[in-house]
Amino acid sequence: MNLWRKPFDIDEKAPRPVKIHIDIDRCKGCGYCAEFCPRGVLKMTGELSYKGYDMVGVVDDGKCLGCGLCEAMCPEFGIYLIYEDKELK
């Protein structure tokens, strides 16, 4: 018996390709996005930004789920997702 089939809504539910945008003018280096990202996509770089705050960087956006947690958690509204497949409606 075949116990596994492809979910019918796999196309709808599959993670959409995203790019992560970090706004260097807004980020204050609190590190929340890097700490709580479930996939380890973001990391504190150990360098300072031009404003003197710790800088966060994208290690591997291929691993990103597009869950949006980093975007929701950022106290500075300073990180957000850009959907690569966005098309004009």
Partner: peptide
């Protein structure tokens, strides 16, 4: 940022400290 439409972006960055809970 999708919430920018609800923010007075000319006043951002805001004055809250790094890691302050008011932003989220």
């Amino acid at each position: 940022n999708p919430v920018d439409c609800y923010l007075r972006v000319d006043r951002i960055p805001h004055i809250w400290c790094a890691g302050c809970g008011i932003g989220p």
